[in-house]
Design a protein around this nucleic acid. Structure first.
Lengths: 123, 123
DNA sequence: TCCTATGTTCAATGTTTATTGAACTATCGA
DNA sequence: TCGATAGTTCAATAAACATTGAACATAGGA
C-alpha cells in the first residue's frame, strides 16, 4: 500500500479520457476543489474530499483521475497528496483545463461545487 | 418521422453532459467534422458521417449530441441537417468548445479525425 | 404509383460505469 | 505494542452505454 501508483506520461494523456473524467460530477468537483486550493497549496489529500462521497468510491474516482493524467498522487505516510497536472495538461491541450474550470465556476451552484470558504474570485 | 426533434434551451445546457458527449470518439469526430465544415456551410446531413459508423449507431450519437445541446437538427425532406450550436455553447461556456476543437485538431491523427476539406460521402 | 434513398425505432447484446460495504494494509503516535 | 487514522482492495449490484441488424417510416423522382 505504500508505493506510488503509476501515472501516464505527458504524451500519453488522451483527450477523450480527460473529457470523460471531467464529465463526472464528483470528479469535476475534485478537480475544481484542487484548482481552487492552488493559491493556498498545490496539494490536497484524499480526506479533504470526504464530503463528496464515501472513501472507497473516492479511491475509485482518484484512480480514474490519475489514470487519465489529470492529477498526480504523492504518497506520504498514511496520506496521499494529490495535485493537478496543470503544466502537462496545458502542454497537451492548451486552454482546455482553464475553459472547463471557468465553465464549472459559472455553474458552481448548479454543480453543487464547493466555492471555497472565501476564495470567491479574489481578483 | 417528420417532426423536428426536441432540443434543450440554451439555459438547459449542462456542462457534464456536454463533456460526456465530447468524450466519445465518434461524437467528437462528428463535432469536429461539423466545425471543419463551418467555413463552407454551417450544416451537414446525417449521411455525411456514414464513414464513422453504421446508420443506426449514428442516429444514437446524433440524439446524444442534440440532447446535450451541442447540435441543432433541422428536418428537410428525407434529410436531417445538423449544425453546431456555437453561439449557445459560447454563451454558456465561453472558450470551451474552441479549446476542445483545438485540442482535437492537435491530436487529429491519434483520434483518426478527418483533417482534410473532404467529407466522406456515401454514393 | 412504385422504387429508392434517407434516416429512425426497436430489441438484443455485451461492456463499462458508479456505488456500496466489508475486510484489509500501512503508518503514526501514545 | 496497541489503537487510531488514512486509504485501498475486492466482490456484488444496478444502471447506463455503445453497437448491431432488422423492420419501419417518409419524401422525392422515374
Amino acid at each position: 500500500m505504500s508505493r506510488t501508483p503509476p501515472h501516464p506520461t505527458r504524451e500519453q494523456i488522451e483527450l477523450p479520457l480527460v473529457l470523460d473524467c471531467l464529465s463526472d460530477p464528483i470528479r469535476l468537483a475534485i478537480v475544481y476543489q484542487l484548482a481552487q486550493q492552488e493559491r493556498v497549496s498545490s496539494e490536497l489529500c484524499c480526506g479533504d474530499f470526504n464530503g463528496l462521497s464515501g472513501k472507497s468510491n473516492l479511491t475509485y474516482h482518484f484512480a480514474k483521475l490519475r489514470d487519465c493524467g489529470l492529477m498526480q498522487t504523492r504518497v506520504a505516510g498514511t496520506n496521499r497528496f494529490m495535485r493537478l497536472r496543470r503544466e502537462d495538461l496545458e502542454a497537451r491541450f492548451p486552454g482546455l483545463l482553464d475553459a472547463v474550470l471557468k465553465s464549472a465556476a459559472k455553474d458552481a451552484d448548479r454543480l453543487q461545487l464547493i466555492t471555497g470558504c472565501e476564495v470567491v474570485k479574489a481578483e
